[in-house]
Simulated assay, not measured.
Amino acid sequence: MLKEGLEMIGTIRSYSFWLAVVMTLICAVIGTFLAQLPYLSLFGALIIALILGMFFQSSKKLVNQASGGIAFISNKFLRLGIILLGFKLNLVQLAQAGIKTILLAIVIVTGTIFLTYLIERKFGVEPELAILAASGTGICGAAAVMGISPQIKVAPEKLERQHENEVLAVAIVAIMGTVFTFIDLGLKPLLDLTPTQFGVFVGGSLHEIAHAVAAGSAAGPVGLDNAIITKLSRVLMLAPAALLIGFWYQKKSKQDNTEKEGTAKLPIPWFMAGFILASVVGTFAPLGTNMLNILVKAAYIFLGMAMSALGMSVNFKVILKRGLPAFAAVFISSIILGIFVLTVSKLWF
């Protein structure tokens, strides 16, 4: 623990760290600004920050100089961003939405992760990529991918490939979510849904919070409120999902590797405890709306910095070569998810 702390202090004091901070902060701030513009809002600040990070790869010398800081930011800032994201969850509002919304979120998250993972594996996608794509599809897009990824412990020689898996999973849920946002908006006149039902439908079936907001707003204030509440109910599942997936993956890896001896350390995601604590504090402490908004904005800045750092450090040519089966699997599971949530919203809300 002491050694790790000293290494962290050394990293923070280095030129590499501060260069990486400047580069990733630029991407995060620009991404936040661009995400407020029409059409670009469908992608969200995190996806835009990732894309901007990709552009820095054209300056290999600069990226190489910042490589140590980039690795630090993609890891530590990610956890800090997820903790702060907890302030976005108002537990009282979620409770007031009723047991139906929470139960629906549990079924959606559990069923979508299982279904998407099984389809991905049937299509020959490696387990690490399959579970990341499944988590992003079932829970909350890019934030879920980055929240689950630390639970997937891989050997040091596989770290670069795992970074590629993270970016590919983020790209999959971003693109699929955008595609289905347009599909849902196009189908809206034909679905004969009340504003409440349409809000539940898009909040329960679309991948990113930005997607749910963009589509839900088409049904007016009532549709938007229900879309956000339903989506945030899925976000609430991030912490328990990370814990369960960590246990599952550790057990699976141990079974696959018969030469492994001893008992591995349980992969408890302590930063997820911070996520839950932040949601409790944000709900019950008298912080005020302005302070909560600042904390949530800070969360997206830190997450945007982590996403852009990821974009600076991966081989996209390799990703493109093996991405098609994963895209196809998520496309199929997204159709099934949409049909299921549409049916439930009509019958239950």
Rank of each mutant, 00 (worst) to 15 (best):
G323P: 07
L25N: 08
E160V: 02
A264H: 11
L324K: 05
T101P: 11
I336V: 11
V170P: 01
N226L: 05
G86Y: 12
E261C: 08
V179A: 08
W270H: 13
V330N: 11
I82P: 01
I172T: 04
T283V: 06
K61E: 15
E4Y: 01
T101C: 02
K251E: 13
L244Q: 12
K254P: 08
M146I: 10
F87A: 03
V63E: 12
A20E: 02
L115H: 02
G199D: 07
S58N: 13
M8L: 14
S58Q: 12
H163K: 14
G323W: 08
L266T: 14
K252S: 14
S313I: 02
S135G: 13
I339C: 12
V173N: 10
L190P: 00
I70E: 09
V167R: 05
A155W: 02
I108V: 10
K76Y: 07
A278Q: 12
L244M: 13
K61R: 15
A105Y: 07
S345C: 00
L187R: 05
V341L: 05
Y39E: 03
L25P: 08
A133C: 14
W18N: 10
L2T: 15
I172W: 03
M307F: 13
L62C: 08
Q36S: 11
S41R: 08
I73M: 04
D192T: 07
G138P: 10
S67N: 05
I47N: 10
S253D: 12
K297T: 09
L185R: 07
T194Y: 07
L104K: 01
L85M: 15
S333F: 13
W270L: 15
Q255Y: 09
M305I: 01
L19S: 08
V125T: 06
G288A: 04
F87C: 02
P195K: 05
F349D: 11
V170T: 01
V107L: 15
W248Y: 13
G44E: 10
L206A: 01
G53I: 04
P156G: 09
I332G: 14
I139F: 10
E261K: 07
T289Y: 12
I108D: 13
F114A: 14
E4V: 01
G323R: 04
I12G: 12
G141M: 06
S217W: 01
G216Y: 10
L115P: 02
I175Y: 04
Y15A: 13
K231V: 07
K254M: 15
V63N: 04
G136S: 10
E120P: 06
A49N: 10
L324Y: 12
T289F: 08
G338P: 03
A212P: 05
V154M: 03
R161G: 14
I245E: 05
I113F: 03
S135K: 04
G304I: 01
R121P: 05
K317D: 08
P269R: 13
Q197W: 00
P325L: 03
A130H: 09
A212Y: 09
W248L: 11
K60T: 02
L243C: 03
I102A: 06
T11D: 13
S333A: 15
T32S: 15
I83D: 11
I73C: 10
P156N: 04
V107F: 15
T11R: 12
G223S: 00
G81F: 09
P127C: 14
A241E: 01
V235D: 09
A242N: 06
L206E: 02
M237Y: 05
F198I: 00
F33M: 14
A144I: 06
M291W: 11
G282H: 04
V22K: 09
L159S: 13
P38C: 00
Y39D: 00
I339E: 07
F284V: 09
